[in-house]
C-alpha cells in the first residue's frame, strides 16, 4: 500500500512539514498526500519539487485534493 499523508483540516505550514517528513522517511517511490485547500495543494507541490520529487497526479475529491508525488527519474 502507498504511504498516505493526511493533512486535511490543517493550515500552513503543517501540510508542507508533513510532506517533507513523509519524503524523508519514504522507502517507496510514491506518496499520496491529502489536503483540503488550494493553498496546501500549491505549497505541497512546491515542497515535493524542492526535494527532487515530482507531482504525478492531482485528483479533486470532496472539496479537497489527492496529490500523488513520486521520486524523480
Amino acid at each position: 500500500m502507498i504511504t498516505t499523508v493526511d493533512a486535511k483540516g490543517l493550515s500552513c505550514p503543517q501540510p508542507v512539514l508533513m510532506t517533507l517528513d513523509g519524503i524523508k522517511k519514504a522507502d517507496e517511490n510514491e506518496i499520496l498526500i491529502l489536503v483540503d485547500t488550494d493553498t496546501s495543494k500549491e505549497n505541497v507541490s512546491r515542497a515535493a519539487k524542492s526535494q527532487g520529487w515530482q507531482v504525478k497526479e492531482v485528483l479533486e475529491e470532496g472539496g479537497g485534493y489527492r496529490i500523488t508525488i513520486s521520486r524523480e527519474g
Binding site: 493550515s11 500552513c12 505550514p13 508542507v16 510532506t19 517533507l20 485547500t37 493553498t39 500549491e42 505549497n43 505541497v44 507541490s45 512546491r46 515542497a47 519539487k49 524542492s50
Partner: peptide
C-alpha cells in the same frame, strides 16, 4: 518560498 512555506 521554494519549499512551499508560503502563508495562505
Amino acid at each position: 518560498a521554494m519549499m512551499g512555506l508560503i502563508p495562505a
